[in-house]
Computed example of a mutant assay.
Amino acid sequence: MCSLRVYAFVALALSSLIPGLAVAQPYPNKPLKIVVPFTPGGSPDVLARTVAQKLQQLWGQAVIVENQPGAGGAIAAKAVARAPADGYTWLVAPNSVLVFAPLLGAVPYDPVKDFAPIGLAISVENLLVVHPAVPARNVKELLTLAKARPGQLTYASGGPGSPQNFSMELLKSMSGTSIQHVPYKGAQAALPDLLAGRVDVFIGQANTLLPHIESGHLRLLAGTDAKRYASLLQVPTVGEALPGFSVDIWSGFVAPAGTPADVIRKANADLVRVLAMPDVKAVLARQGIEVRSSTPAEMAAAIDADLVRWARVVKDANIKAE
């Protein structure tokens, strides 16, 4: 009996000294940090806080949301890329951070090599609108007007390389039109001039634009996705008038490269579970956000496809960072 106790004591002592002999606790077993690359209030922040609340309930572990805005998302992306690859630091990763920014020049991270995709999460509803003074009530009329008045119409964006800039340059390229770019320091900064009629055209998030559309201060022409949005089935897509056009503004979650595969599988499974909850879908829908969950491999493929597709737009339109 005495010898058995000695062996047990020695084994216990060794396991505490030699990590490899200790029994690993299943993931997750400590708090998770979700880093948001922008200020509070936008769709990435809404996504992070909604998912964090549910994961905390599911796991019984604290889930902390930390906003690290700046440099178009590069500050947050760099921080997560350099975090320990243990699954306890996630980045809310929109395609503006993983695709648009890297295509415009040097960023302190590689969107493919520095991250391990966990999964896509959402697609944000984006709408094409004009000021009511613009004599166009649908996409076809807008394109006809732009061709009749080359260079006379203007469109606003949140700056070079913003989703609005990329989306409108794709529209111009595919339709053979010339519409002048008026950049602002952020999409919100463009709204006053758009509402006042000092710029003509804009593509932006539905939750921001719908109140102005409903009040009659803006005219809605179309949605930008390949299919009609479920919450706006009466609204046509740009692609119905301009075949092949689609812009999907998505966000997902990534972890640092090298995160163990079993940790990524667990993270993905629970993320998909949370996004399937009816109350989560309802909260996001009220913000003009549609759930779009995926596997890690599907998110990796989406990143690769967007990098190829938008690289052509950057080259053709000569889009440059500020």
Score class of each variant (00 low, 15 high):
A79H: 02
A93R: 04
A106T: 15
L104Q: 08
L104G: 06
T50F: 06
Q57A: 14
L58M: 11
L55K: 03
E66M: 02
V63Q: 12
K78C: 00
V80F: 01
N126R: 10
P132M: 13
F100S: 05
V65A: 13
N95I: 11
A136Q: 11
A93K: 05
W90R: 05
A81S: 14
P84R: 15
N138W: 00
P117Q: 15
A81P: 03
A93G: 08
V92R: 04
N126S: 07
A76C: 04
V112A: 10
L143P: 03
G72V: 11
A62S: 14
A101N: 11
R137D: 15
A93S: 15
G87V: 10
L120Y: 00
V63Y: 09
V80C: 08
T89H: 10
I75V: 15
L143K: 12
K113F: 06
R49Y: 06
V99G: 05
L143I: 15
Y109M: 10
F115R: 07
A48S: 13
N95D: 15
L55G: 07
D114Y: 01
K140Y: 09
L120M: 14
V99L: 06
Y88H: 15
G87W: 00
T50K: 00
S96Q: 09
R49I: 04
R137V: 04
A136T: 08
W90A: 07
A52T: 05
E66F: 02
G60R: 11
V134G: 13
P135W: 10
Q57N: 09
V124M: 06
N126D: 13
A71D: 15
V99E: 06
A101E: 11
L55Y: 00
L103K: 07
W59G: 08
P135F: 08
V107G: 03
L120K: 13
T89I: 07
P102G: 03
N67S: 13
A133D: 12
Q56A: 15
P84W: 12
L120Q: 11
G70A: 14
S123I: 14
G119D: 01
L103S: 13
G70N: 08
V92E: 04
W59V: 13
G119S: 05
V92A: 05
V107P: 02
L127M: 12
R49A: 09
F100H: 15
N95Q: 08
P44C: 02
V80H: 07
T50L: 04
A101I: 01
V112W: 05
I118L: 11
A48C: 10
D86C: 08
S43D: 12
I64G: 01
V63T: 07
P94W: 01
S123T: 14
V130L: 07
E66S: 06
N95V: 06
A93P: 01
Q57R: 10
A48K: 01
D114C: 03
L55H: 03
V51H: 05
L98H: 09
E125K: 01
L47T: 05
A85V: 09
P111K: 04
G87N: 11
W59M: 06
H131A: 11
